[in-house]
């Protein structure tokens, strides 16, 4: 039920690839933890107000050390450590099988494929089932490349080339958009991502090269 309410063509909670899925898992874990901590603080506040006698035996030192140090520090160390390890796994380390160039300008995206091949139709074509690196830059102002169902985002900055690795489980149509405010056409900077079965992708590239 809840998950159905979160689905959508641009929903980060409706992942369609392993990388976006691990980000969504991280979110659900953090949401659970946050809900527990919130409940704890609110219950303590409520008791402190309505039934202060119940808590009157807790000494000042116990409040400060217990609530301020013992409670948050282990949680934060574990969470940050886990997030850094996950971040390491998501980094575009080494070479992915395929590297696609993405260029943003006001207010559209264009994509270039190895060897100058490929269809220049504003759609990002990629093979499904394998990681793909997108090297993102900008021709004018700063934009941001974001395909929520396949992974996180990376900024397109003039003078810089930033690489993000994406992966789609299944062939299909996904949607991406510009996430960094870039002027009057920022509203309409969506783009289509088409993931193909690997053999279809190879055929598409070969066809476009001719």
């Amino acid at each position: 039920m809840l998950l159905a309410g979160c689905s959508g063509e641009l929903s980060a909670l409706d992942p369609a690839g392993p990388r976006a899925a691990s980000l969504a898992t991280l979110w659900w874990i953090m949401l659970g933890g946050a809900a527990l901590l919130f409940a704890l603080v609110m219950v303590l506040f409520g008791i402190a107000y309505l039934r202060p006698g119940w808590l009157s035996r807790i000494t000042p030192m116990q409040w400060i050390v217990g609530g301020g140090l013992v409670l948050p520090i282990p949680i934060l160390v574990l969470l940050t450590g886990a997030a850094l390890v996950l971040g390491e796994q998501l980094l575009p380390k080494g070479d992915a099988p395929l590297r696609i160039e993405g260029q943003a300008r006001q207010w559209a995206w264009s994509f270039g494929y190895p060897g100058g091949a490929g269809p220049y139709d504003g759609t990002l074509h990629m093979p499904a089932g394998e990681p793909v690196d997108i090297a993102v830059t900008s021709a004018d102002v700063i934009h941001s490349f974001w395909v929520p169902r396949l992974g996180g985002k990376i900024d397109a900055i003039p003078g810089h080339v930033n690489v993000i690795r994406l992966e789609a489980d299944e062939p299909g149509i996904y949607w991406g958009q510009c996430a960094e405010y870039c002027g009057q056409g920022h509203d309409g900077m969506q783009f289509r991502v088409e993931a193909h079965a690997p053999e279809d992708f190879a055929a598409l590239m070969a066809g476009a090269a001719q």
């Binding site: 971040g87 390491e88 380390k93």
Partner: peptide, 14 residues
């Protein structure tokens, strides 16, 4: 100790 600890294991240049 905690904030500088990542120097021991996190990728420095990517």
């Amino acid at each position: 100790v905690l904030v500088f600890l990542p120097v021991t294991f996190v990728s420095a240049c990517i």
